[in-house]
Simulated assay, not measured.
Amino acid sequence: MDTSQDILSPLRSAPGGVYRDDCVTVIRGPAPPGREIAHTSHFTVHAGEPLAITHQLSVDDLDEDLTGLLRTELFEPGWVRGPELFERLFTGIVLTCADDPLAAWEAFYRNTIRQESTPGARPGGAIEEFRPVHDHAVELVLGDSVHELGSCFGFLALRLAAQGLDVTASDLSVGTMQLLGAVAPRLGARVATVVADAGHVPAADRSVDTVLAVHLLEHIDTEHGRRVLDEAVRLADRRVIVGVPYEDVADETFGHVRTIGPADLAELGAQTGLCFEVHEHHGGWLVIDR
């Protein structure tokens, strides 16, 4: 994800299982009596300012499928709206599950990686949804060095690093890059992290074999997207891989600002003047080769 501002501090502590910022309060523990406006399988929403959520999840429950729980139980019913609140609640829930923030995030990463390596173990969740996307991206990579633009948590970057590739991950979020940089060594992975807008990366021309922009363009407007593709082509010595979800309506919960279809991908490819092809596999793919 490539966002316009860094709103999170993912390594801050949440003493006593309580996370607070200027927009949300997240508490791990029994829901206090009164002021309850919604109760779901995993969360209780409380009235007042700021928004307050209670939960009883543990470190064993932390993985990327938390995305689906928040979406189906809080955002789709309309109890909460907006990508900023989504990110704040997600962060708050993770941090309230352990006294040590890095231990909480390490559990989140390890649990997600374990689930992603076990196809069919938990059908219908975010991990199961993204597994074929990441599988396909890995299949398309050429060469020994990769730069993933807008990497967010960096699960794809970590997977490529585990296969022995020289991997760089970049994202506009300072906090996300700090988190990935701190967790990767604990997972035995070597991933270089760079804080950068995907449209302006401080790296040399043709500095890596493959550049990835997977589920990034739907988060940014058309003009920015063109700059990102130009930058990806500049950085790549052999191949650029772009992956997008095919949506009828942009999903605002995840910060999507536009839909992108096969014709849009083909137009982007043609504008590069290079050889390209567009195909579909759990979404749309644009592959550009020098």
Rank of each mutant, 00 (worst) to 15 (best):
I7E: 07
L11I: 12
R12V: 08
S13K: 12
A14N: 09
P15H: 03
G16D: 10
R20I: 09
D22A: 15
C23H: 14
V24F: 08
V26Y: 10
G29H: 14
P30G: 10
P33T: 12
G34P: 07
I37K: 13
A38P: 01
A38R: 04
H39C: 11
G48P: 08
E49P: 01
P50Q: 09
I53D: 02
I53L: 15
T54Y: 05
H55V: 04
S58Y: 03
S58C: 11
D60V: 04
D60F: 06
E64M: 13
D65T: 06
T67Y: 07
G68K: 06
L70C: 02
L70I: 00
E73G: 02
L74I: 05
L74Y: 03
F75A: 00
E76L: 13
G78K: 04
P83C: 06
E84C: 00
F90L: 11
I93C: 05
V94K: 01
L95I: 05
C97N: 11
D100R: 03
D100G: 03
P101D: 13
L102T: 11
W105S: 09
W105L: 09
F108Y: 15
N111Q: 12
N111Y: 09
S117C: 12
S117E: 15
T118P: 00
A121T: 14
I127E: 06
I127Q: 04
I127P: 02
E128W: 04
P132W: 11
H134E: 05
A137T: 09
V138W: 04
E139N: 07
E139V: 08
L140W: 07
L142H: 15
L142Y: 08
G143M: 09
S145H: 08
E148M: 01
G150Q: 04
S151L: 04
F153C: 02
G154F: 01
A157L: 05
A157T: 10
L158R: 12
L158P: 01
L160S: 09
A162E: 14
A162G: 15
L165C: 12
D166R: 15
V167N: 12
S170F: 05
D171F: 00
S173N: 11
S173R: 02
V174N: 00
G175H: 04
G175I: 00
L179K: 07
L180F: 06
L180M: 13
L180S: 05
G181A: 14
V183D: 05
A184V: 12
G188Q: 13
A189Q: 14
A192I: 02
T193F: 03
V194G: 06
D197R: 11
A198D: 04
G199S: 08
A203L: 14
D205H: 10
L212Y: 07
V214H: 00
H215I: 05
H215R: 13
L217C: 03
H219M: 09
H219P: 04
D221R: 13
T222R: 15
T222F: 06
L235G: 07
A236T: 11
R239F: 08
V240M: 12
V240Y: 13
I241F: 07
G243N: 13
P245W: 01
D248P: 01
A250F: 05
T253S: 09
G255W: 01
V257P: 04
T259K: 02
I260W: 01
L265R: 06
E267Q: 15
L268K: 06
C275S: 15
C275N: 14
V278N: 06
V278S: 06
H279S: 15
E280K: 03
E280I: 00
H282C: 09
G283M: 03
W285D: 05
L286A: 11
D289A: 09
